[in-house]
Design a protein around this nucleic acid. Structure first.
Length: 895
RNA sequence: GGGAGUUUAGCUCAGCUGGUUCAGAGCAUCUGCCUUACAAGCAGAGGGUCACUGGUUCGAACCCAGUAACUCCCA
């Protein structure tokens, strides 16, 4: 095959992805091999691929491909979650476009439309993952609302309810008036907002001229009102009391009094509680139990009435008496005017505070009392925390253990009901007597009801709870339910694949999702769901801003892959992604990835231009042995990096192995001298075979990072005939072989010599084509005759001689502890040379002084480990040898 | 307000149990090269007060205390 000058990824990507699919390489079924399992963090079914997904799924694919190449039965389960709020919003919007109002259709009709929407758009993100090369077992694709998945959710709900871990109750929830549903604490995003603080006067007697109902109005000298500071004047109609701190001396006169709410003149008591901060606002707090979490608690404590003045959509209801029907924010503006007119507004101040917004609709969250379903967290959190603390579940990096612990120790009950239709409808059935029964089906519920209450009810007497379950309630079962382990806890698949191995996700959902999977894993199987949780960072732009649609600073992954190739983008993502740290993404990383692909491509092209000449003997034995050792060294390094989940380092080690060791050194060492009129360059059989073998091994190591390019090259005829199933994707990684460390370190010296020769050419402006003579005065045991061919070839040296005396007037340098001379026909700048040598000498003297200081320090000799002392002795010997050379050279210059 | 984390070259990051000629890598930069695999390249070079102050130690980028800046989580 004659190949192009640059690698063009597009055809290779399409060709090999479908080849892999066609030959079922992604498919996993239980067998006798060790399993390696990853479940994908199911992306939101409404989602499209963004850079966060790219990062996350690149990492998973690297891990799964590597496991496959290590002989494991690798299974990567893909899928999506149903994202109740987001999807319902999309469907409502779709209906609106068709002129349909959600309110006018039944639940069943709505769900039909929702499924229609899901079938049409729900698979987009999974298709995009294929472009990236994701080697998921697509036959296992799951959706959290698939029939079996939903059944698992219902089973789990019934089970938890039976154990008393789920209850129904009135609680203050985060109400999203736009989405018309409660959302969990985790779905509320707090933001700093500029607001106004309104100072409102509450008078001791009614303001409209009616007689005071108080017999003991404050005596003269005291004002006839108190002032309360609030950011929410529209809720005064819901006030149940005014609270002051009992220790606040300013308000001693208020104890036992009551005041009137402005505009509506409802009388409320002044209560005492040290909950009130004396130095905030005026020190008087209006207590509105229906509309503030803390006030609710205070209200409970003091037995205050709850007056809810808001409708679900955020408008004021008739209990407000005034401004009925107005939106809460419109009402705020209007009431300020009314208060002003009534003389009840003392002043307003600018004020910033944290306000909660709905993650899905961005509406301001309204604390609202309502009947909801809750999952008790404390009992479930305890064992889930243990898994992480005792290391059964490892968090990578470890710093997240603290965060996790903090959450799990301060956990609050989880509101699992959502006032939506898209999701699993809660299996609770209300009876005419006001009680309810939880059961898997309506029929079962009926049976239970009739048994419990001895009442001959019929199926139509039961009414199912309207609410659906939080999406996280179903994704919390993901690692179990994808293997049908909830409904059939002893099936072959769950027994084989569970617990899974690695989970790759974002720290933002450590609690939302990861913790809940650990809880459900413990609850259902008494086992962890996974062994390692690799937490990725947030993808930011190079200015450090989070990538977002609004800012428009996120590149389109599909376009990026078009520009740099999927392999290039994969490499680009990994190059800048240390575990757990945010990554400052920049396209230039993908460029580096693309360049790397091209480098490999061209190395391949070079070898393609060679042909074996059986008459030639192998003159490259040293180079071959050396690269073999370097390869094994790198392999060990990469293995270690993977063990520690240092993927970017593993990639960099691979990058350097290929670019530096293989291309820049090895290939240059063995490359035949160019013969202009030959179609192919002649090379001996042994070198050719070794070089190709190395290349094939390199393709294997590269494959998890760059699957397409490696598969493309793997099938070239250069490697001989390949059987249909002989693919790089299922090739087995080479085992780590022997490493000749002496050879490696001697070649390091040779590399230094070559670099010095090249540097000499550069500084003396000599052409690389001009061959130079090199003389060595060896102090070390290195056999330079052995390395002569390499030095000559790489340094373009015409003659290498061994000498025993320094050569005056020659350019000289030191490598290791040996001296080298290049005799040139040009004048040496004696002054500059002297300066250079003196600098070197001074450095060595200083260095020796430090080493000697250590060695003559009794406490060092007494405390340091023996190998450290050995090292210092070696440092001393080496430095002394070098110093001697430098001093000799200086004497030579003087003489 | 409470908690966690980060700070090392222009940028992104390594630096493991305090000790290797320890201050590193990649990218970027500069200089010279269109040298028959690759200019998406080759050869070479420069670049640092390890945030700051103090302490522990024979020895500190690393351990301890304090300070500053930034980031995240929770209220």
């Amino acid at each position: 095959m004659i190949i192009a000058k640059t690698y063009s990824p597009k055809e290779a990507e399409e060709k090999w992805y479908s080849y892999w699919l066609q030959h079922n390489f992604f498919r996993s079924v239980p067998d006798e091999r060790e399993p390696y399992t990853i479940v994908i963090p199911p992306p939101n079914v409404t989602g499209v691929l963004h850079m966060g997904h790219m990062l996350n799924n690149t990492i998973q694919d690297v891990l799964i491909r590597r496991a496959r190449m290590k002989g494991k039965n690798a299974c990567w389960v893909p899928g999506t979650d149903h994202a109740s709020i987001a999807t319902e919003a999309k469907v409502v919007a779709m209906l609106k476009e068709r002129g349909i109002n959600k309110k006018d259709i039944t639940r069943e009709e709505f769900l039909k439309y929702a499924w229609e929407w899901k079938e049409k758009y729900g698979g987009i993100i999974l298709e995009q993952l294929k472009k990236l090369g994701a080697s998921c077992d697509w036959e296992r694709t799951k959706f959290t609302m698939d029939e079996d998945m939903s059944e698992a959710v219902i089973d789990y709900f019934v089970r938890l309810h039976k154990q008393g871990l789920i209850y129904r109750g009135v609680r203050m929830v985060n109400w999203d008036p736009q989405g018309n549903t409660a959302v969990s604490d985790e779905e509320v995003i707090r933001k700093e907002v500029n607001q106004k603080l309104y100072y409102i006067k509450y008078f001791f007697s009614p303001q409209d001229g009616n007689a005071s109902s108080l017999s003991d109005l404050p005596t003269s000298g005291l004002s006839d009102f108190l002032t309360v500071a609030t950011t929410r004047p529209e809720t005064i109609m819901a006030d149940a009391a005014i609270c002051v701190n009992p220790n606040d001396e300013r308000y001693l006169h208020l104890h036992g009094k009551s005041v009137f709410i402005p505009l509506i003149n409802r009388e409320i008591p002044v209560i005492l509680d040290d909950y009130v901060t004396m130095d905030f606002g005026t020190g008087c707090l209006k207590v509105t139990p229906a509309h503030d979490l803390n006030d609710y608690a205070l209200g409970q404590k003091h037995n205050l009435p709850i007056i809810d003045i808001l409708n679900d959509d955020g408008t004021l209801n008739e209990k407000a008496q005034i401004l009925v029907g107005e939106d809460r924010f419109a009402a705020r503006k209007k009431i300020a005017v009314l208060l002003e007119e009534a003389g009840a507004l003392a002043k307003t101040e600018d004020y910033t505070s944290q306000i909660g917004f709905s993650e899905r609709t961005n509406a301001v969250i309204e604390p609202k009392l309502s009947m909801q379903w809750f999952c008790k967290m404390q009992e479930m959190a305890k064992p889930a925390l243990e898994y992480v603390l005792n290391g059964e579940v490892k968090l990578i990096p470890e710093k997240f253990i603290n965060t996790y612990r903090h959450w799990m120790e301060n956990v609050r009950d989880w509101n699992i009901s959502r006032q939506l239709w898209w999701g699993q409808q809660i299996p609770a059935y209300y009876l005419p007597n006001g009680e309810y029964v939880v059961a898997k089906t309506k029929e079962e519920a009926l049976a239970i009801a009739n048994e419990t209450y001895h009442s001959p009810l019929t199926i139509n007497d039961l009414r199912q709870e309207d609410d659906v379950l939080d999406t996280w309630f179903s994704s919390g079962l993901w690692p179990i339910s994808v293997f049908d382990g909830v409904r059939n806890p002893d099936n072959a698949e769950i027994n084989y694949y569970y617990p899974t191995n690695d989970l790759v996700t974002a720290p933002e959902i450590l609690f939302f999702w990861v913790a809940r999977m650990i809880m459900s894993g413990h609850e259902l199987r008494g086992q962890k769901p996974f062994s390692n949780v690799y937490l990725t960072g947030i993808v930011r732009d190079k200015l450090g801003r989070k990538m977002s649609k609004q800012l428009g600073n996120s590149p389109d992954p599909i376009e990026l892959m078009g520009k740099y190739g999927a392999d290039g983008v994969r490499v680009g993502m990994l190059l800048c992604s240390p575990a757990g740290n945010d990554l400052m993404f920049d396209e230039s990383y993908c460029e580096q990835g693309r360049n790397f692909a091209n480098k490999i491509w061209n190395a391949f092209k070079l070898i393609q231009g060679w042909a074996v000449d059986e008459n030639l003997t192998n003159t490259n034995q040293i180079a071959i042995e050396w690269f073999d050792s370097r390869f094994n060294q790198a392999l060990a390094q990469i293995e270690d990096d993977f063990k520690q989940y240092r993927l970017s380092e593993a990639l960099m080690a691979t990058y350097k192995l290929v670019w530096d060791d293989y291309c820049a050194w090895y290939l240059e060492m063995v490359k035949p001298v160019y013969k202009p009129n030959a179609e192919k360059q002649s090379i001996d059989a042994e070198t050719y075979a070794a070089t190709i073998n190395f290349f094939q091994n390199i393709l294997k190591v590269l494959h998890p990072f760059m699957p397409f390019l490696t598969e493309e090259l793997w099938h070239d005829e250069l490697f001989g005939e390949r059987a249909e199933l002989d693919c790089c994707i299922v090739a087995q990684l080479p085992a780590i072989g022997e490493i000749n460390t002496q050879l490696v370190s001697e070649i390091e010296i040779i590399q230094q010599i070559v670099a010095q020769v090249r540097n000499t050419r550069n500084t003396k402006q000599l052409s690389p084509k001009e061959a130079l003579p090199l003389a060595v005065r060896a102090n070390s045991a290195i056999d330079y005759i052995k390395y002569q061919p390499i030095i000559k070839h790489l340094g373009n040296i015409n003659e290498l001689t061994l000498v025993t005396e320094a050569i005056g007037g020659a350019v000289n340098f030191i490598a290791g502890t040996d001296e080298f001379y290049i005799a040139l026909n040009i004048e040496i700048d004696v002054a500059a040379e002297k300066e250079r040598l003196e600098k070197e000498r001074d450095y060595l003297i200083g260095f020796l002084k430090a080493v000697n200081a250590k060695l003559s320090n009794e406490r060092f000799m007494a405390n340091a480990k023996p190998e450290i002392i050995q090292n210092e002795l070696k440092k001393k010997a080496d430095a002394e040898a070098r110093l001697k050379i430098v001093e000799d050279a200086l004497r030579g210059l003087a003489g």
